[in-house]
Simulated scan of single mutants.
Amino acid sequence: MALPTLRPAVQALQPELVTWRRHIHKYPELGFREEQTAAYISQRLKSWGIPHQTGIAHTGILATITGEQPGPTLALRADMDALPIQEANEVEYRSCLPNTMHACGHDGHTAIAMGTAKLLQQNRQRLKGTIKVIFQPAEEGPGGAKPMLEAGVLKNPDVEGILGLHLWNNRPLGSIGVKSGPSMAFADRFQIEILGRGGHAALPHQTVDAIVVGAQIVSALQTIVSRNVDPMLPAVVTVGRFRAGDAFNVVAPSAEIWGTVRSFHPDVADLIPRRIEEIVAGICKAYGATYDFQFERRYPAVLNDPAMAELVEKSARQVFGPDAMIIPEMTMGGEDVSFFMNEVPGCYFFVGSANSEKGLDYPHHHPRFDFDEAALGIGVELFLRCIENYTGQTLNEMN
């Protein structure tokens, strides 16, 4: 794999990036509980002389690096939260906490943002404009971007553009994923409660079997994408939870079905919940059951601004050279960075982080997820190059 030559300042920073990332990985915290993580970040920002606000949306941080030369205001965003997963890796920095793990790369995102902030602060005499670094809680849920936005992190001074990145084990180290327009999907959630009538398993005629009703619903939901959605428009309907019954000889009186809907086009995002409820209502009526249906519109689709996507691609080609592996990445995964990008032009891009030769290629949200830490320096270099191109300056001679 062809890797870029990083500027000396980033090369020198690499050991610190690894140290920060491993500390955060070792002490993971779930959404809106990132107290130790926030304190760790704040201590370092303070030691570098970077003004910052803490406690935004519970645990979020906003750091502001003000250049000594006039210029635009650009924001960088990194998420800090972990997942409720028991880590299976046997490494020195494995999670110390049961059923809590950084299994999506947020520890790396945080380290990259910290490193970028440190180098910008050290070179603010050459920096044009202002860079706001947003350390956001609860991306995995219930969502920290919206409350940080409501707290005014894009104001005073007003942000003109925003960038974010995601370490990406779906692609090899040395690759970059970026495209204009839709990049990540609407991430919506539904809950269905089926209310039947319980009874003895040997006397089913006296009952309304919620499991049978639920099974019919789960099967029928699979026809929405195949028969109701334009086949040229991507969509996913997934049932992730089906719970019913307590005994082998009792007909279940109720059942719960939970799932997620992913799509890119607003019309599809509106069509699918309507069809879900129509299917649920029809099947329940046919079997004599009733239901409760709840649909939660969670994260909007991530739509990259064309000019900002072009900025990232240009920067990536400068970093990786003529043989740059740039992929027009598009995924059904969701991301609440979309709330920021609905307010100001932005680009959310992917930094390849998998290395199969080292066994660092498990997928995101897997209990053995880990990534090649060489991606940390690449992430800092990409952020710096994007800043240079956005503000029209060069920081190549950084301290």
Rank of each mutant, 00 (worst) to 15 (best):
C104A: 13
R189Y: 05
P84M: 04
G115C: 01
T207A: 04
R94N: 05
H166Y: 06
V91G: 07
L165T: 10
G108S: 07
A113G: 11
L195S: 12
L127T: 09
K118I: 03
T110C: 06
N156Q: 15
Q191W: 09
A185H: 14
Q86P: 05
Q121P: 11
I211S: 03
A202W: 04
L127K: 10
E87P: 00
I192Y: 01
M80G: 08
H166T: 00
S180E: 15
K132I: 01
V208T: 15
P204L: 06
A113C: 02
R189L: 13
I176P: 06
P182Q: 12
V212G: 01
P98T: 02
S180L: 01
P137E: 13
Q206N: 15
A201H: 08
K146D: 15
K118G: 06
E90T: 02
G144A: 03
C104K: 13
I176W: 04
I192T: 06
D79M: 07
C96Q: 15
R197G: 08
V212R: 14
T207L: 02
R94E: 11
Q121I: 01
K132F: 02
V133N: 09
G105I: 02
W168A: 03
N123V: 07
L120S: 10
V208P: 00
A82K: 13
E87Q: 05
F186W: 12
A145W: 12
G143E: 14
G198Y: 03
P137W: 05
T207S: 12
S183R: 06
G161S: 15
D81Q: 11
A111L: 03
E87Y: 10
L195Q: 15
P204S: 07
V208D: 13
G108K: 05
D107Q: 09
M101W: 11
G199Y: 12
I131S: 13
D158C: 08
P182A: 04
L97P: 03
G129T: 04
V178Q: 00
D81V: 04
L83S: 10
M80I: 11
A113W: 06
L97C: 01
A78L: 06
G108E: 11
N99S: 14
G196F: 00
K146R: 15
E87V: 00
E87A: 01
A151F: 05
R189H: 13
N89F: 07
F186S: 03
H106N: 15
E92R: 04
T207K: 05
K128S: 14
D158K: 13
R189M: 13
N123C: 07
L127Q: 12
R77K: 10
G152T: 05
G198R: 01
G174Q: 08
G105N: 14
H166P: 00
V159A: 08
G141S: 10
N123R: 10
G198I: 00
L120G: 08
